[in-house]
Design a protein around this nucleic acid. Structure first.
Lengths: 195, 195, 195, 195
DNA sequence: AAGTAAGCGAGACGGTACGTCATGTCTTAAT
DNA sequence: ATTAAGACATGACGTACCGTCTCGCTTACTT
């Protein structure tokens, strides 16, 4: 009984993998998401189109991996207050959404994810996974400090924070100033504080 | 006093105009934004493609007009409290974003608008125009009642409300329950109240 | 009994007629037959498209009239010999087929005429009408002089002369030298002489 | 010694090639040259349009290859007399120009070739290539027999023969009778005999 | 003088074809 | 089995012309 089949034939080339991701990031940054085609990515990476389709099911999944997999596991902020923690989380979110490749990719990428039932579920579970775990931790501490109610709907808060940042800087295209995180924390944060 | 030069040539056919908008709405609802093509809209409307391109510059502008120009001039809500007014505004926003054609069109449509510098400016000025005028009025009343600070950044609040609704129901695809508006008003509204 | 109904309504404008023919000739000369469109002719003539369609059924008929209606009724040549007369006829034919507008129009124009059963019959009766009447006269004189046989198939000779000129200068694009008419008269003419 | 680089990528499918040529021949025969579109050829051949454009630059080149590349290398006729040889050559030419697909294609096809400088040069070198080599041989034999002058302009004779046949049966649409070749040989052939 | 009818320039109309591009699959030889 | 290359069927793109139509206007002839 074999649990894992022995790998047969030529193994996949990891250099190709990396070249594809780099090419995808570059093209999305230069041309935008809509104008980036699989064929162009393949050409720039010096790779056949099949080599891409063998690894990703389409443009959305490829660009997602290329642009959003600098998954630095940021530890949850711990400034001592809910407002401070939220500001820190928002700063990270703003930074993530305004990085050149991400800003260029996000609207089209989210649209493609939203249009595909299989991908739609992954928006919250993957795009927002790091933010969510941080938010949960921040809330636990705030509950312990008595700053907020244990029944706060975390997912809704998360969608609100992400939606506000995405709409403000991703869609409307507003340049984020230095106080943006604090302002958003004030708008969206105090609502969940226990008075 | 003549402000407009005399129209020359055969005037545009309003029946064609309407047939195109209807066909576009139907196709977006049935197939989704990405799968809706100008050619298919023309075919269903019984119209040549030129007749569409003569009036709209592309799919984004056409679908925008088809789906978001039942501009019912809703008067600003006046429930007596900021929280109540915001809830009413959010209910209208949720209803607008979850209507079948709008829900099918929004992610792709906003992506196309965001990708085009000329259209991007119109996201806030047209998609959110009715909501914004309502919000401004609601704030003026809240300021007079002493509920909030006159310096609240209205555009940022608007982006937060719209972003939250769009992300929560448009992208993530969450079905809006009856308390959603109130919950969002609580999350995003109390932050701007004067303590 | 009225043979001709009195003309009612506004009479046709002769200046428009002439402007259309001029524009058609210019465009055919500048762009070639295939690239000349009815719309472009109308625009250059400062005329509506209907004003053209009211007078001609299509591009072929319009260009035919524009380019081949300098019907100078050349008298049949009379040099005293069949060879001389044929040379003179061929010179006229060569001149007609190599005039700038005619050279640009002929291949496409004849193709359109040949493709349309209604127009096809007019190729010999209109394009070659002047040449044919000249040829008949030349033959009658040659028969009287005993140079040729009365049973010569005139139409076939005419098609041969026209075909030779059209193929040589119209299609192949050979520049006609000064002896071309004489050479063709020698090739195609001596065959019909009585030895 | 390698003259050709190794072919890379998927090789072209010969069945597609053949299906395209067959479809083109059929459509030209059924609808005529002008009404035959590349899209219709692709549809009937069960092929994408690109597969056609990858091989031919346009309708003219495609139809030329479809209709005129049953290059049966007919040996030059050798009947013993110039008149007999010319009659045989003309019979072949008549047969070629009156074959259903050829008759339907020729006027429009030659017009397209004549309108394009790049293609124009190929009219004599490709359409008439077989006839020309035959004609040259026939002439050499006739010169040896003393029937004709070595200085006869062969190209001009060829254009005359082809032009006569094309104009008579291709454009004017005359049905060729059994003596047509002999009559044309008499008209165009005796002129080049040495008296 | 008023009415009627056709011509006129402009340009919108429903169609059809164009030639290009992107998609995702397939087929080759070479690794 | 994977690779780079590139052919393949499909179908959308935005443009151009076709020949017809619908406007407001003009120009004649008919009452």
């Amino acid at each position: 009984m074999m649990l894992s089949s022995a790998p047969r034939g030529r193994p996949r080339d990891n250099r190709a993998h990396q070249a594809i991701l780099t090419a995808a990031t570059e093209l999305v940054t230069e041309l935008g998401y809509a104008a980036t085609s699989i064929g162009a990515v393949a050409a720039r990476a010096g790779v056949g189109k099949d080599t891409i389709y063998r690894r990703w099911s389409g443009k959305a999944e490829l660009v997602y991996e290329a642009v959003f997999t600098e998954t630095e596991a940021t530890p949850a902020p711990d400034t001592g207050t809910l407002a401070g923690d939220l500001t820190a989380l928002l700063e990270a979110l703003i930074q993530e959404f305004t990085a050149p490749a991400a800003a260029a990719a996000l609207p089209g990428l989210l649209a493609d994810f939203a249009a595909n039932p299989g991908l739609r579920a992954r928006i919250r579970s993957e795009f927002l996974a790091p933010a969510k775990s941080g938010l949960v931790t921040v809330f636990e501490r705030a509950v312990q400090r008595g700053e907020t109610d244990p029944n706060v709907p975390v997912d809704l808060v998360l969608d609100t924070l992400a939606g506000a940042v995405f709409f403000h800087v991703g869609l409307v295209g507003e340049q984020p100033g230095p106080q943006l995180a604090a302002q958003l924390a004030a708008v969206a944060g105090r609502g969940i504080e226990t008075r």
